[in-house]
Simulated scan of single mutants.
Amino acid sequence: MDPRLTLVTLGVADVDTAIAFYRDGLGFPMQEREPDSDVAFFTLDGTWLSVYPRKLLAEDATVPFADGDEAGFSGVTLAHNVDSKAEVDAILGTVEEVGGRLVKPAADTFWGGYSGYFADPDGHLWEVAYPLLTAE
């Protein structure tokens, strides 16, 4: 298997809400889709992001689907690295305006960077980080 990631699919409660958040709110470029399609694809730098109804994604993977609110941490976060602390702050400052939820305000990290977390409308966690790199 090639060591690369080509597509991340998020199981969502409502595809139109996810489109509004990712395309309209965060500005992710979206591929054209049929109006009644169950899936939407966003072109990212080097990979793709798709949103698909959570129940249908569970069925596709042949795993049980628990109807209702899932409690607890799923064990997965997505990360977006940027070029400055100001860019971290700007992105996290926009999240609530476009339908997301700030989970952890940006702060200096134990690993020497600067980051914060937000949740999309379905609770998927994203870290926005400025990784401070030092030459030794």
Rank of each mutant, 00 (worst) to 15 (best):
S84R: 09
N81M: 02
G72H: 11
A13Q: 10
V51P: 02
E70V: 15
P64Y: 08
D83I: 08
V82Y: 04
A61S: 12
G113P: 14
P131S: 12
S74Q: 09
V12T: 14
G123D: 08
G100Q: 08
L10Q: 08
D24C: 10
D89C: 03
V95S: 07
F41T: 09
D89F: 03
E87A: 15
R23V: 01
S115F: 02
L44T: 08
L10H: 09
G11T: 09
D2I: 10
G25K: 05
A20N: 15
G68L: 12
A86H: 10
F118A: 06
Q31I: 00
D120R: 10
A40K: 05
A106L: 01
D24L: 07
P131F: 08
F28S: 08
L7M: 12
A18H: 05
K104S: 15
P121F: 13
A20W: 03
M30G: 13
A86R: 13
P64C: 08
G25C: 13
V15R: 15
E32K: 14
A79T: 14
A71W: 00
D2A: 09
V15F: 07
Y22L: 06
D45N: 03
E87M: 13
E127G: 03
A129M: 03
D45L: 00
A13K: 12
T109R: 13
V95L: 12
S84V: 07
F118W: 09
V8M: 06
D83W: 01
A135G: 08
E127R: 00
E96N: 02
D122C: 14
N81P: 04
V82D: 06
S74A: 15
L49Q: 04
P64T: 14
V8Q: 09
G116Y: 01
V103E: 15
Y130V: 11
A107F: 01
I19R: 13
L7R: 03
R4G: 03
A58E: 07
T6D: 13
E97L: 14
Q31E: 15
Y52C: 02
L49N: 04
P131D: 10
F28W: 12
V8H: 01
D120F: 04
G93E: 13
A86I: 04
E59G: 01
V128A: 02
K85G: 03
F41E: 09
D69T: 15
L78G: 08
E127F: 00
A79F: 05
V98R: 12
A106H: 09
D60L: 09
W126Y: 08
A79R: 09
F118D: 02
E87C: 10
S84L: 10
G27T: 07
G46A: 06
E136H: 10
A13V: 00
V128P: 04
D108Y: 06
F42R: 04
G11Q: 11
E127V: 05
G112C: 09
D69P: 00
V76Q: 05
L78S: 07
A40T: 07
S37M: 06
L56P: 00
T77C: 08
V128G: 02
D45S: 04
G93D: 05
L132C: 01
T6G: 07
L10G: 11
G112H: 06
E32M: 04
A18I: 02
S115M: 06
T77Y: 00
S74C: 11
